[in-house]
Simulated assay, not measured.
Amino acid sequence: MSSNVQAHGVNKVIVAFKENTPASEIDTAVKDVESKGGKITQRYTTALLGFAAEVPDASIQILSVHPHVDYIEPDGEVTIYAKSLLSK
């Protein structure tokens, strides 16, 4: 099982909304996720509009057709690996 999918069809995702989406639309989406058993783990308002969440499969399907959602992507740990090209 990958690190961004948990047991029982619960997925860790980032949901990003289109620019100029009203806060009320995002709040409604949050309530929809929570009503389906999902959990919002982070809200984003600066670099992007949206949230990170642990959501059941059914919520992803509902969010994917939401007219204000720009994209949904897996939420996982990001690491940076740098290698110096100058040293030999």
Rank of each mutant, 00 (worst) to 15 (best):
M1I: 10
N4Y: 15
Q6R: 13
A7C: 04
G9N: 06
G9K: 03
N11C: 15
K12A: 15
K12L: 15
V13C: 09
I14Y: 06
I14P: 00
A16S: 12
A16N: 08
A16Q: 13
A16G: 00
F17T: 01
F17S: 04
F17Y: 04
F17I: 07
A23R: 10
A23I: 12
S24G: 02
I26G: 00
I26N: 00
A29I: 09
A29H: 06
A29R: 06
V30W: 01
K31P: 02
K31C: 08
D32K: 14
V33Q: 01
V33Y: 01
E34W: 03
S35V: 08
K36E: 14
K36S: 14
K39C: 05
K39V: 14
I40Y: 01
T41A: 05
Q42M: 13
Q42R: 15
R43K: 13
T45W: 02
L48K: 09
G50I: 08
G50D: 05
F51D: 03
A53P: 02
A53S: 11
E54G: 03
P56T: 01
A58G: 02
A58R: 09
A58Q: 13
I62D: 14
P67I: 04
V69C: 03
Y71V: 10
E73G: 09
D75Q: 14
G76S: 12
